[in-house]
Structures are given as C-alpha cells and as structure tokens.
Amino acid sequence: MFLPMFAMFVLIFIVGIVTARARFGHVREKKINPKYFLLMQGEDVPEAILKTGRSFSNQFEIPVLFFVASLTYIATGTESMVGLVAAWVFVLFRAIHAYIHLTSNNLIRRMQTFWLGFMCVLVMWLDLFVLLGLNY
C-alpha cells in the first residue's frame, strides 16, 4: 500500500510545483500583485492562478480519506488485493482529474474522474470494514 501512497504524494508534489510556477510567473510578468496572495482576494485573478490553486487545494480533500485508509491497511498489517487495486486506480483517476483540471478543465470529464476516484476510496473503506470491522 506504500507505493500507491507514494505515487499520490508525487502527484500532489507535481501539482504544487505547477501551482507555484503559475504564481511566480504571473507575479514576474506583473499580471498579478504579490499582495493578492496574502488573503487570496482583492483583484482580478488570472485563470491559471485560480485553476492551479484550486487543483492543488483539491489534492487535500478526498485524498485525505485515501491516505487514512492506506495507513490503516499498513498499520494493521492488512493485505488485500481489492484494497491495493482500488488504491492504484484511485491514484490513476486523481492523476487524470488533475490533468483535466490543469488543462481543458472540462467540467463533465473532471466530475466523472472525481467520482470514479471517490468510488475507489469507498471500496477501500468498505474492504477495511469487512476485513477489520468485524474483529473489533
């Protein structure tokens, strides 16, 4: 379960770099005042700043449930092919989701990948419930 967690960490790190580059680039090109970032309000914000920032923030929403489930598998020594496959598929859908969010931002495609990833986390939690919940 560690490898899907590490892959998710790498994805978050990449989205963070894309976000930082967009911010620094727009400040350098004087398309946004650096003071905007103090409270994230106060002026017209270029789409790239909003899109990358929201994509980065989004990496700390549903993925938190993924990390907790993954750590539960590890901490309890629970091995599950269902959980492992669901974890990898989750990371795949999160990567696709981030790509869509940072490029075309197609709402329907983004929602589809979000919900498919969400279902993977649900599968992980249900799998944990079946494997561990009955023992406590």
Rank of each mutant, 00 (worst) to 15 (best):
I12S: 15
I12Q: 14
L39E: 12
M124D: 05
V123I: 15
L122Y: 01
L3E: 14
L122K: 00
R23K: 13
W125Y: 03
G117Y: 00
G117M: 01
V121W: 01
F118K: 03
L134A: 12
T19Y: 07
L50P: 00
H101N: 08
L71T: 12
I17N: 04
Q41D: 15
R21A: 14
R109W: 09
V123M: 09
K51C: 09
V82I: 15
Q41L: 11
Q59I: 03
G133Y: 07
A7W: 00
E79Y: 12
W125Q: 06
T78W: 06
V45A: 01
V15H: 01
K31Q: 11
A75Y: 07
R23D: 01
L84A: 10
F60A: 04
T72H: 04
L11W: 03
V10A: 14
R28S: 12
K30N: 14
S80F: 02
A86D: 06
V123D: 08
G25N: 04
P4G: 02
H101T: 06
D44S: 12
V15R: 00
L107N: 07
M40F: 10
G25E: 04
V27I: 15
R21S: 11
S55K: 00
V123Y: 08
F13D: 07
R109G: 09
F114D: 01
F67K: 06
R23F: 08
I74F: 14
A22M: 09
V64A: 15
G16K: 07
A86Y: 01
N135W: 10
L92M: 13
F6N: 09
R21N: 14
T103V: 14
L134T: 12
F37Y: 13
Q59H: 09
F114I: 05
M5Y: 01
H97W: 05
F67S: 10
S55E: 03
V27C: 03
Q59L: 13
V89P: 02
E47W: 07
A86F: 02
G83Y: 05
L39H: 11
R110V: 03
I96G: 06
N33E: 13
L128V: 05
T76M: 12
D44F: 03
F56C: 05
I12Y: 05
Y73C: 04
L132G: 02
V15K: 02
S57V: 11
G25T: 09
V123C: 08
L116R: 10
F6H: 08
G83P: 02
P46M: 07
T19G: 04
G16H: 06
T52G: 06
T52I: 11
G117I: 01
C120E: 02
L3M: 14
L11K: 07
L38V: 14
V130G: 08
F129I: 15
W115C: 05
L39D: 13
